[in-house]
Simulated scan of single mutants.
Amino acid sequence: MTQLIVTIEDASLLPDLKKAIKMLRGVGNISVKKAETPLNENTLRAMRDVKEGHTIKCKSVEEYLEKVK
C-alpha cells in the first residue's frame, strides 16, 4: 500500500477533493488529519529544561512564589 499526503490551506475544498479522489481507481480509503499546531519557543524551552533536570521543587505555593521572583 502507498499513501499520498496532500496539504491544503482552504478547508472548504476538502469535500470536493475527497469526492474527486474517491473516483480514482484503486483508492481504498481517505482519511483526514488536521495538522498539529507547532509549539512555541517558550514551551519548547520548558520541555528542554525538564528533560535536563532544570526544575525546582517546592513544598507550598508560597515557597514556589518566593523562588520564581
Rank of each mutant, 00 (worst) to 15 (best):
T55V: 14
I21R: 00
K33D: 06
V61H: 05
R45M: 10
M47I: 15
M1C: 10
G26V: 08
V50N: 09
L24D: 01
S60V: 06
R45Q: 15
V27N: 00
K34I: 10
V6S: 03
K33H: 15
L17H: 09
C58M: 08
G28I: 04
K67F: 13
I56M: 08
E63L: 09
K67S: 14
N42R: 06
L13S: 10
L44C: 01
M23N: 04
N29C: 01
L13C: 13
H54Q: 15
G26E: 04
T55N: 12
V68N: 06
I8F: 02
V50Q: 05
G26I: 01
P38F: 15
T7Q: 15
D49W: 07
L17D: 05
T43F: 11
A11G: 11
D16G: 11
V68E: 02
S31G: 07
E66R: 14
V32W: 10
K34C: 07
G26D: 00
L24K: 05
K22D: 05
P38K: 10
L44T: 06
K22S: 14
T55L: 10
A35P: 04
E9F: 03
T37D: 03
K67T: 07
N29G: 00
T7W: 06
K19D: 03
I8S: 02
E41K: 14
R25E: 07
A11S: 14
Y64M: 13
K18A: 10
D49V: 03
A20Y: 06
A35H: 08
V27F: 02
V32A: 09
E36A: 09
Q3H: 05
Y64I: 09
A46S: 07
E63N: 07
P15Y: 01
P15G: 04
E36K: 13
Y64D: 03
C58L: 09
P15I: 04
K19W: 00
L44E: 02
V61L: 14
D16Y: 14
C58Q: 05
V6P: 01
R45G: 07
S31E: 14
E66V: 12
K19H: 00
L65T: 08
A20P: 02
K51H: 06
S60R: 13
E63D: 11
R48V: 05
I56H: 05
I5K: 11
I56G: 12
A11Q: 12
L4P: 01
N40D: 15
E52I: 04
L17V: 08
L44D: 04
E52A: 08
V6G: 00
E36R: 13
L39A: 15
R48F: 10
I21E: 01
E36Y: 07
N29V: 02
K18V: 12
M1A: 06
E9V: 04
K51E: 15
A11Y: 12
